[in-house]
Design a protein around this nucleic acid. Structure first.
Length: 365
DNA sequence: GCGCCTTTGAAGACC
DNA sequence: GGTCTTCAAAGGCGC
């Protein structure tokens, strides 16, 4: 029923969640990409200002008042796609009914609309900036674009990042309001992600050797795209090896933010996109990991192309297992994950700028 | 046509 | 509690 087009509670939720947002004050938070925009919460996109507040995750046809439009529940979430992954919710009859049936059969489960995860801050940033980078760099491959965006992300000011953190937080809130029962776990396995190294005969060091292309090498010098390239290049290829920086106790005051912050460090061994350092008591170059340019990712035996940096061992021998994005180094280590920690962050700003390479090592208590 | 690549962040799973 | 894994977006490319 279209009568439910605008569930009051939904609107109020949206308003309470999103309107206070002091995003996009100078510029549109989400520029409209060539292909049209996708709105995260189309049902809530009542007006221009609102729609521009939230990220875009739905195709235009979703944004404009759909003929059959909204689900009976009146809460068509952008994150909803029909069973298949990466599908546009064309005939969407969203989510809610998935949750209505308490014990869905397997068949129903397959039909169950796919409620996507809310975008995190970086994803929101990417969505906004992708087109820009594509235009600037004439790059098309997302892998390359994402590399650039990743570095740009870290070059953002605290305030700028905070905007996205805040938006992401609100998105999560809204998402949870709309889908109280939803869990990220619901989407597990729906992506048919890459096959892990669970092949019985795959050696530990094999999993890093992909027959497919490693990834797109983005050439910084060719374009004005992203100067940081040179910086991280110098940063990570520099004598100051990751281990050196790892050894740095770093961010003494960042006690709070150390929690569960995925640490990343991507190195760019000449000509390669990255390889992974494993510092678990071994030198980066020793044995499995970075000895060759074969982009060996030793990390954990089961780790994928991006496992997290984990610092463990005797609390003094950090292990770097996640590909460490050049610029992300300092961010991961020094910057709080969210605006919630901005205060503390603020005090670290100077350090952040002057000490790009440093890791927060866990000190045993 | 599916999956990988690549990025960061959030959250679930696991130990 | 700490670590690991998966997924979210995106589009070119390999198989």
């Amino acid at each position: 029923m279209s009568a439910e087009f605008e569930p009051p509670h939904t609107l109020s939720i949206f308003l309470s969640l999103c309107l206070p947002l002091s995003l996009r004050q100078g510029q549109p938070m989400y520029s409209i990409p060539p292909g049209g925009f996708r709105h995260p919460y189309p049902a809530l996109a009542m007006n221009a200002s609102m729609s521009s507040l939230v990220s875009s995750r739905f195709s235009p046809h979703m944004v404009s008042p759909p003929p059959h439009g909204l689900h009976q529940t009146g809460i068509p979430h952008p994150a909803i796609v029909s069973s298949g992954i990466k599908q546009e919710p064309s005939d969407m009859s969203p989510s809610m009914h998935a949750r209505k049936s308490p014990v869905p059969s397997k068949k129903e489960e397959d039909k169950r609309p796919h409620i996507k995860k809310p975008l995190n801050a970086f994803m929101l940033y990417m969505k906004e900036m992708r087109a820009k980078v594509v235009a600037e760099c004439t790059l098309k491959e997302s892998a390359a674009i994402n590399q650039i965006l990743g570095r740009r992300w870290h070059s953002l000011s605290r305030e700028e990042q905070a905007k996205y953190y805040e938006l992401a937080r609100k998105e999560r809130q809204l998402h949870s309001q709309l889908y109280p029962g939803w869990s990220a776990r619901d989407n597990y396995g729906k992506r048919k992600k890459r096959k892990r190294d669970n092949k019985p005969d795959s050696k530990p060091e094999d999993f890093s050797i992909r027959s497919k292309k490693q990834c797109v090498q983005y050439l910084p010098s060719e374009k004005m795209c992203d100067s940081p390239a040179s910086s991280h290049s110098s940063m990570l290829d520099s004598p100051a090896t990751p281990s050196a920086s790892l050894a740095s106790p770093a961010a003494p005051a960042a006690t709070h933010s150390e929690q569960a912050q995925p640490l990343s460090l991507t190195t760019k061994p000449e000509g390669r996109m990255h390889h992974h350092y494993s510092l678990a008591g071994k030198a980066p170059g020793s044995s499995s990991s970075s000895s060759s340019s074969s982009s060996s990712s030793s990390s954990s035996s089961s780790s994928s192309s991006h496992s997290h940096l984990s610092i463990h061992g005797s609390h003094s021998t950090p292990i770097l297992s996640r590909p460490i994005p050049f610029a992300s180094l300092h961010h991961s280590m020094l910057s709080p994950p969210s605006p919630y920690h901005q205060a503390a962050l603020h005090s670290h700003h100077a350090l952040f700028q002057s000490q790009p390479l440093s890791l927060v090592t866990k000190h045993n208590n």
